[in-house]
Write a protein that binds this DNA or RNA. Sequence first.
DNA 1: CGTCTTTGACCTGCGC
DNA 2: GCGCAGGTCAAAGACG
Length: 635
Amino acid sequence: MEMPKRRSKAMENNNTEENSFLGNTPVEDKTKKSDDGHDEEGTSMEMEISKSSSSMDITIQGRHGWLAEPEQTNTSMPSSSAGKDRALIKHPQEKELQSAKAKMGEVKEENEKLKLLLSQIVRNYQSLQMHFLGLLQKDEEAKKSMDPSSSARDQSNEQDEEADELVSLSLGRSSSTDQPRKDEQMKKTSHFSKNGKGDDEEGLNGAGLALELGCRFEPAADQSTEVVMKNSSSDNSCGDPKEDDPTEIWPPSKTLRTTRSGDDEVSQQTHLKKARVSVRARCDAPTMHDGCQWRKYGQKIAKGNPCPRAYYRCTVSPSCPVRKQVQRCADDMSILITTYEGSHNHPLPMSATAMASTTSAAASMLQSHSSTSQQDHTAMAPISASTNLQGLNFSTSTLSQNSRLPQHFYFPNSSISTTNSHPTITLDLTAPSPSHFGRFPAAVFSSNPRYPSTRLNFSSSPSSSLDHNNNTLQLQAPWNNNHTAANYLNYGNRVLNQVGSTLNMGKQSIFQEPNNLYQSYIQNQKPPPPPLPPPPHQQLMLTETIASATKTITSNPKFQSALAAALTSFVGTNGGSATTGVRENHHHHQHQSSTSTESASGLKLKWAESLTTNPIYPPSPNGIGCASSYLNKSS
DNA sequence: CGTCTTTGACCTGCGC
DNA sequence: GCGCAGGTCAAAGACG
């Protein structure tokens, strides 16, 4: 909806290095690289062309040197005739001018096509959303008509299966043991259940949320998480519905005290630890701006860190169970570690949905892994798959709770210490140690030894490379020394594009031969032209790597959801923090930050494309087609 | 005066 | 049982 605006906005901005979500892919393979070695994005092509009109002989030569080099060479050659020189100089310039105009025309055409594609995508998205809402309503009606007490366990199983299939839509939903009451709660808080869609703005919100893993559906997300944990921690425990009463929303210790009446509950409580999402980011402000309202309710000096840890609770809703802890890193005071716990049970402002979705998705993912682990205590081996696609290194591992098992992934960036009782995902948005990740962003999801880890490594490496040992592919990050927030976000943006396409690819891979898979991947690869495609022996490895990742992704929709939310949040969070930082430190970059935030929104739409391929829904005729044609178009 | 922050006290879980 | 550490409460103070 806003995408065309974003694109044109980005195009109008001649000086910015921003690239919109739509802008980067289709044209960037044509743009190749600019002469300074930066991998300029698609939109920048138009920018540079417009720039070139003012400084034609320089810019065009740089940009299209591979086309105009002979003429340029001629112009610089010594000549005995001044008139000939003038003619020689004039002709190349006219040619270049015409070439530039032709390019502009092409780009305009591309732009129009993209707009058409975008409108198609939006239509698909809207229809998908309507489909989703319809299913939800049906689901609610069906559940209301059922007797909750007699079929609680059946429902629980069904819900578990459903959750496995469609986490993105069920993050905020609860176990069925308390479904009726949750339905009531949802009626109170959900925008969906009131009129099915809410007003336009809320509809938009809901749309975003639907893609952002159901933040709007979170009245009982926390409880949902807890139920999952209960089920996982005690194999056959269904849990007392009382405990899951959604009206009893985790008012911390008081509630816990009152509910800790029975031994069962106590034993369950000991296992009932909330998943946490920890974000490490460089931030000068006392707390990171994440779009939510927080009230500080405590401060404590934690062991091993001279910096006090501050405790905040969400004040958007008085009953919101979400807490966050903020603490500066002991090693680097400029790093702010923000740990989120719980899920919001109220509508969120758009600026806050990203982080909320991450916490929900991450919690859900951790929980699901935990429950998976619980299913087999004896023969637990780490199930892992790791891949690094176009700079995005994501891996999943199901670690046994037996801490003796080797840490399948260890990341020097995940220095946050967590209690063993809390599964924690750490999103590291700080610059990594140069020896490991080059100069910039490594978004690392990690966890403590007892819980599954997911790593998103937006690592920057000097060049693309395939790590045979780790079965990961490191690809070149497009920034060099100027690590502006905008660059950061742009890269996250592009990574998201690529992951989105990869997820699409993953879906398709069910029906594809591995070779096609690889081709699809290659087709989806855009800019970094120099290192790709890899040599044949690396192609095989890459195919295996992608197949491995695809298997992981396709076999675990929860991971898809969590990944989507995490990435969305990654950009969104960065948008928030980056905006803050930019505002505080680099006022002249403000427009870049805002554009980046818009780009982040664009990413959500991109994820919508990916989600249109969700097997739950029949693939719309344009679903995959849109994404793939859009992607292929640019290759 | 209402809201938010501060801070000491208290509670709980865990290891020894 | 004791001590420690993490987490929370709630009264007091600060602030607008």
